[in-house]
Amino acid sequence: MKIKSEPDKGIYDAFNKGIQRSNGIYIWIVNSDDYIEPQALKELAQLIESFPEDNLPIIASSMRFINLNQNTSTIYISNEKAPQKGYKSLDMGIIHPATLVPKSIYKQIGNYDDRFSIMADIDWFIRACKTHQPIYSSTIVSTNMCYGGISTTSQFKKLYKERTMLYKKHTRNLIEEKLYLSKWCIRHFKNTLYTKIKSLKHK
């Protein structure tokens, strides 16, 4: 086990440092508030052994999302149709905390763009789809994520700024950009309202 602790420019800069220092075939990023399932490494190792060595895919496994405030948990199952759907809508089509990536793919398409502070994982996923990287969806529940991370608590202005930056990076059509951002705003506020209502019901 190698441990490196030093100042960084944010979570994606830290991700990149880990990727650069790794020497394995697959890389799995586990955040500080996440924890893996007891049998995950064994099950994932068996799955990896079933793949041809010259065509290793990105493994999009499944995840348990835990809300400690409400004492509830939800299992999100990886869906083989989700990557294409996410790519078309410029959104995340895989469950990033439950995703394992061959180091060869990081070498091919690059690491995370640390100009983003929240959505570099979405940007990376879009680049993976653009270059037609293989993605294998698995029902293996590999990790547990707790509510309260940067992606679940960020303010609207910060999210909107990053969405705008994300869209400008991947398209040049101003009309489509405004339409995309409008749809995202509506979806964001609907989800926020739903979460607040659900939270009130548990009080």
Rank of each mutant, 00 (worst) to 15 (best):
N173V: 11
K198C: 04
N31R: 01
C146H: 12
R115A: 12
Y106C: 10
G93V: 00
C129W: 04
H202R: 09
K130Q: 15
A45I: 00
L181E: 10
P57G: 12
K178L: 08
V101H: 06
M1A: 07
D91N: 14
F51V: 06
T152W: 00
Y136F: 15
T171N: 13
R172T: 14
P134Q: 12
Y147P: 03
K88W: 05
K196R: 14
S73Q: 14
Q133R: 14
R127K: 15
Y112H: 10
R187Q: 11
C185S: 15
N191I: 12
N55D: 15
S5W: 11
R127E: 14
F15W: 12
H202M: 08
M1F: 00
C129I: 07
V101Q: 10
E6M: 13
I109D: 07
V141Q: 01
Y106D: 10
I58C: 08
R163D: 08
M1H: 02
M63G: 06
Y167L: 03
F189V: 11
P102Y: 04
Y12W: 11
K81L: 15
N31M: 02
I27W: 08
T164E: 06
L174N: 05
A120N: 08
A40I: 05
E37D: 09
K9Q: 12
S22D: 05
T152C: 02
K190G: 03
M63V: 15
I126W: 10
M145S: 13
L200N: 13
S89H: 12
C129P: 03
L179Q: 10
H132R: 13
G24C: 03
T131H: 14
R21C: 09
Y194E: 11
K158I: 11
L174R: 02
H170C: 09
S89D: 12
Q70W: 10
E49P: 01
F65Y: 15
L68S: 13
E37P: 01
D121L: 02
K169L: 06
G18H: 03
P97T: 07
L100D: 10
Y87T: 00
T72P: 03
I36H: 06
N69Q: 14
I19H: 05
Y167P: 02
V141G: 01
K183F: 00
N79W: 04
N55L: 14
I186R: 04
F116H: 04
F116Q: 00
L181S: 04
L100R: 07
K178C: 04
S138W: 02
S22P: 05
E80M: 05
C129V: 02
D54K: 14
H202E: 13
Y87Q: 02
D8A: 15
I95M: 07
I122R: 06
K157N: 13
I105C: 14
I19M: 01
L181Q: 08
S138I: 01
K88M: 10
Y12S: 06
Y26Q: 05
K168V: 00
D33E: 12
